[in-house]
Amino acid sequence: MQIFSHFLKSPAKAENVIPPSLLNHYFDEMINHPDSPFVLAIEDLKKLEETSDSTQEYLEYLLEDTIFISLHLTFYEKLFIVLGQHPHLAIEMMDKFSEDIKEREFIIGQETFCHVQYIENHGICQGCKAHDNHQDVFALIEHYFNQNIDFFIQLYLGMQTIQYSFDKLLYDILPENKTLLALQSEQTILEFRKYIFNYVSNELK
């Protein structure tokens, strides 16, 4: 699953608009809380900026964190799809997902490093562990060397807001609404992800 392609395309025409997801209203409820996913993402962005000594360093942090978060989201998406296929194993799979966080983040960290190196080398790779997946981040190269901070801020906030929303969905919403488990699918999760990203984009206008 390509990690950025859904968000780097031109705005969809009317006939391509995705219908509302069954999960969208849960996100609408989340944003009414003081610690909403978007608010938490904004706080993370402020911390990131405060720790940066220069615009270039800020850009590098945004690039690295955005790729890391986006790769992490693909693990969530795969889990949600499997939960939809095997809802009777939900508790066991959720527990296993939580237990594997260190191993998962190590794998994601390695791939993130490879992608960042690829981008900083102007799209040149001599062959690394993530070589076959570099096309997923190819579109970021131009924005990175143009120092398009606004682009990366929007992408970062979008990915981070989705991350917090997925956490809420996995650990709070699905366990209390088990009928939703069987309704999870790749399309459902994609719609939910796009809905959140569009919300963030509108908030930044």
Rank of each mutant, 00 (worst) to 15 (best):
L48M: 05
T55R: 05
Q160D: 04
N177Q: 08
C128E: 12
I42V: 13
L204E: 08
L45C: 04
L204N: 15
K46D: 10
N32L: 00
N146D: 04
L181H: 07
E105N: 10
A130E: 03
S54Q: 04
E186G: 07
S5Q: 03
E60I: 07
E15F: 05
S185K: 14
Q135S: 11
D150H: 13
I162P: 08
I91R: 15
T66P: 11
Y195E: 13
L83R: 12
R193D: 14
D35F: 15
V17G: 02
E43F: 14
E99R: 13
G127L: 11
I69T: 10
L140E: 08
Y58F: 15
L23R: 01
Q117H: 13
L8V: 00
I119N: 01
Q117F: 13
F113A: 12
K9V: 10
L62K: 05
H134T: 03
S36F: 07
F152M: 06
P11D: 07
S98T: 02
S10P: 02
M30C: 00
P87N: 03
V137Y: 03
L59Q: 11
K102D: 09
H33Q: 11
L23H: 01
E105K: 01
F192W: 14
Y58Q: 03
L22K: 00
E57I: 02
C114F: 01
H72V: 08
D95Q: 12
T112A: 03
G84L: 15
L181S: 09
D44C: 06
F106A: 05
G123L: 10
L170C: 13
I149R: 09
P34Q: 00
K178M: 10
M93I: 08
E176A: 10
Y61M: 07
E49T: 06
Q85P: 04
L83W: 10
K78I: 09
Q2Y: 06
L157E: 05
Q110W: 06
L48S: 02
M30G: 00
D53T: 03
S70I: 03
H115T: 14
K178F: 00
A41K: 03
L48H: 04
L157Y: 06
F27H: 01
